[in-house]
Write a protein that binds this DNA or RNA. Structure first.
Lengths: 181, 181
DNA sequence: TGGCTCATGTAATCTGTTACATGATTCT
DNA sequence: AGAATCATGTAACAGATTACATGAGCCA
C-alpha cells in the first residue's frame, strides 16, 4: 500500500481507462503524458507489483505471438483509492527547468552561450509542438469527446504553453543581441 | 566532488554572484528561483560541505548580533567547475504538474472536481504573478541591467507562462461547463 | 545476420525530503 | 511572554534513475 507514491496514482489512473502492461505504461509516459509526468521502468514495474499486493490491481499473464506479457487491471478498491486521491487538492507542481537555471547564471559566461541554451530549448519545443496540435485536432474531430475531453485539455495546455515558450525565446534572444551592441 | 548533482551547480552559481549563507540560499530559492528550481535545507547544507571539501567553496564563520553564520564564497576552481557546466547543454527540464496529472484522470470523478482543480491552480498562479511583474519593472528601471539581465529574462519567462496558464484556465473551465449542458 | 522493438525485471546507487534537534534574537 | 524569524545541521527514510540481465520476434 503505497503511502503517497504519486506513480501509484498515475498507474491506477491509466488502469482505470483500460487494462495495460508496464511496457505500455512507459510508452504512454513517453508520448501523451510527456508534457507533465515521467517515470522509468525501474519505478513502474515495482509499483505494479505493490499495487497488486495491495489489492488495487490484478495481473493476467498472457502470451501473444510467443511474447509473454502481463496485463494489469484495476480492482474496485483500486478505483476507490484513485478516486480519493482525485478528490484531494494537488499538493505541488514540481518544475525544474535546467535550461532556466543555466540561463540564470549565464552572466558568468558569454552571451553567445546564453543564446545557444535558448536555441536548444527552442528546437526541442518546436519539435514537440506539432504532436500537441495534432492531438487537439483529433480530439476536436470526434465530439462528443467525453472520454478524451481531459486529454484535450492537457494537450491544449501544452500547445499554449509551448507557443508562449517560443515567443519568449524570440524576445529573449533579441534582448541578448541588443545588449551586445 | 559531486558528480552531477545539479544543486551543487545551483549553489556555485549563487556563490558566483556573491558570498552567501545556506539559509540565504533557501530564501533565494523560495523567491527568485521559485519559478524553476527548489531544494530543501536537507540538501543545501550537505552540498555546501561537499563543495568546500572539494575545494570549490570556502567558508567563513562569523558572528553578527550574537548570531552565528557561515558565509560561503566560491573559489577559482569552483568558478571553473561552474563554467564548464554552464557551457554544457541542459540535459532535461523535469516538469511534474500534479495538477495536470489529476485533471487528466478526472473522467473518473465529476466535472466539478476538475473545475476545482483548475481553480486552485488559477489562484496559486494569480497570487504569484504580481511578484514577477514587479521584478521585471525593477529590472527595466535600472539599465544598463547587465548584472540582472538574466534575472529579467527568467522573470519574463515566468510572467508570460503564468499569463498563458491563466488564459488556459478560463478556456478549460468554459469547455467543461459547456460539456455539462 | 544484425539491429530494433517488444517485454519484464532487479541491484546498486543516487538524490532528496521530512522531521527533528538546538538555540539565539527580534517582533508584537 | 510568546511567536516568528534567523541559523545550522543530521538521521531516517522515500523515491527514482541507471545500468544491467535476459530473451523472443520482426524487419531489412
Amino acid at each position: 500500500m503505497p503511502n503517497e507514491n504519486k506513480n501509484a496514482y498515475l498507474i491506477l489512473g491509466l488502469l482505470s481507462h483500460n487494462p495495460i502492461t508496464g511496457y505500455e505504461i512507459k510508452k504512454v509516459l513517453n508520448t501523451t503524458l510527456k508534457l507533465f509526468w515521467n517515470a522509468s521502468y525501474g519505478s513502474i514495474y515495482p509499483t505494479l507489483s505493490t499495487l497488486e499486493k495491495s489489492g488495487f490491481a490484478v495481473s493476467d499473464k498472457t502470451e501473444e505471438n510467443g511474447r509473454e506479457k502481463i496485463i494489469y487491471s484495476i480492482t474496485e478498491s483500486g478505483r476507490e483509492y484513485l478516486k480519493e486521491w482525485l478528490q484531494t487538492p494537488a499538493v505541488k507542481d514540481e518544475l525544474k527547468y535546467e535550461t532556466l537555471l543555466k540561463l540564470f547564471f549565464c552572466s558568468d559566461v558569454s552571451e553567445e552561450e546564453a543564446i545557444e541554451h535558448i536555441e536548444r530549448f527552442e528546437e526541442k519545443i518546436s519539435a514537440e509542438l506539432p504532436y500537441l496540435e495534432k492531438s487537439i485536432e483529433i480530439c476536436k474531430a470526434q465530439p462528443p469527446f467525453d472520454k478524451h475531453k481531459y486529454f484535450m485539455l492537457t494537450a491544449m495546455f501544452g500547445k499554449e504553453v509551448y507557443e508562449t515558450y517560443l515567443k519568449w525565446c524570440e524576445e529573449a534572444k533579441k534582448i541578448l543581441r541588443e545588449g551586445k551592441d
